[in-house]
Write a protein that binds this DNA or RNA. Sequence first.
RNA 1: GCCCCCAUCGUCUAGUGGCCCAGGACGCGGCCCUCUCAAGGCCAAAACAGGGGUUCGAGUCCCCUUGGGGGCACCA
Length: 499
Amino acid sequence: MENNQPVRVRFAPSPTGRTHLGSGRTALYNYLLARQTGGTFILRIEDTDQKRYVPEAEQELVHSLRWLGLSWDEGPDVGGPNGPYRQSERKDIYRQYAEQLISLDRAYYCFCSTERLAEMRKGQQVRKEPLVYDGTCRHLSVAEVQRRVMAGEPHVVRFKTPRQGSITVRDLLRGEITVENRYLDDFILVKSDGLALYHLAAMVDDHLMGITHVIRGSEWLSTFPLHGHIIRAFGWTEPIFVHLSVFLKPSGKGKMSKRESAQLIQDGHSVFLTDLEQLGYIPEGVANWIALMGWSYDDHTEYFCLQDLVDKFSLQKLNPSPAAINFTKLDYFNGLHIRTLAAEDLAERVRPFFDAGGYVVDSDKLRQVAPLIQPRITTLDDALDMAGFFFKDEVQPNPAELIGKKMTAAQSAHAARRSYDILASLAEINVETAEQPLRELADGMGLNPGQLFGILRVAVTGQSVSPPLFESMAVIGKAKVLQRIQDAIAALDAMDSAG
RNA sequence: GCCCCCAUCGUCUAGUGGCCCAGGACGCGGCCCUCUCAAGGCCAAAACAGGGGUUCGAGUCCCCUUGGGGGCACCA
């Protein structure tokens, strides 16, 4: 809010795997800042590494971001004036800028083999030196370079990092970061296959696309000084850099490993956005949750819809320290947002889960059920356990559960019969018609309402935990309710005679 | 090993020298409500990593230690 200048920001993932919570948050923050300032949000695909390229990754990414509710103004799927938006399609652009750096004497050709490089590092390792390129190809004559390139010798282009002095770059959250140049490598800018590496490609694109704020993960902090060198070598104006904290595993000890990520889904959680969707988390809940991991709002508000976040987001309130993922808080936020949904909306969202569970659901009935389950579920998926019985023809109660608390099977059967007679006499069963007479019945029989209602609950819903009894009966309908009570009486009688 | 970053309740965090014997949220415990389960309401327990400075005064500034994280690739 304090920054009302329209920003140009970008989310620039590499399509190498599944879309993670951390990516979701980075994308979200970029989006929020763009929308808040009336700026531009660009999606750029950083696919310069063909070895790690996963074809489905970009689709999953786009799906997940859209699911979260984000939209972008420029990108590979929507186009825009700064395209192409896939780096693999911008190869010639990078080559051109690499050559410019060479002519500026800020980059050079390097012919060292990967074997020689590995050997070099081994030596540096034992001598406890920084693992940086030793500069062998730094001072090759123009003639020699030309000869070897012509001869078709494999080569890369390296940045000529100054050997003396230091560089100071500025991160919005951390302030100035100064590093001595001797610890910085002569990073490779262009690989031997002619494709640029991130360091060059991202800086060139950010410049060409007019990016004003680079909001990215803190894994880039260590190469940040190099990026500063590249930008300054070209004489470009520097965008504002914001490095977001990393997510730690729930224990707070370390980052989530692949194996641990896979393990998570066993208990209904995941760090992958598409998994969360399938698990029954809703985008409002997930967005609220990740927004608050590393960002806060001063008045202690924690409940935010996407538009609230757009209005209230602020770079200044970002927190640079790593944050442990807290799934119980996700459950809380998800439940919170489910409860604020309109009943019809909830019904619609829950429907695919019933479909997937093999239920045949009637739309009208589902709309009636929605408000009943709304305060009782934390994920959409929970609806099946809570309300599946509404959509079954028959219900199979556990016979033992049909017996009322501190009662015998015979007593329970008797109570069920008396209840049956009352309910059968009603024109229609609902809270208004049924509750009062059944309470009186319980009272007359010397039972707690809980004892009687418990028997009926298990009989009618087939489960000991359910939405409120009479509301449930109203949805199920008189005929089915009576049938189920009759079945329960039979089961109780059978238990009684069995001893 | 080398470089960089971070450090308040179990977790997410508020806190930018006095308003803090540290506030909120999740979770946990208790109570209320209640036909079950939830939801909701109320109450409680729970933290400034350690050591040095600076200052009249430090969670807040500086240094060291410790701990945690990231990076050290022809990955991003």
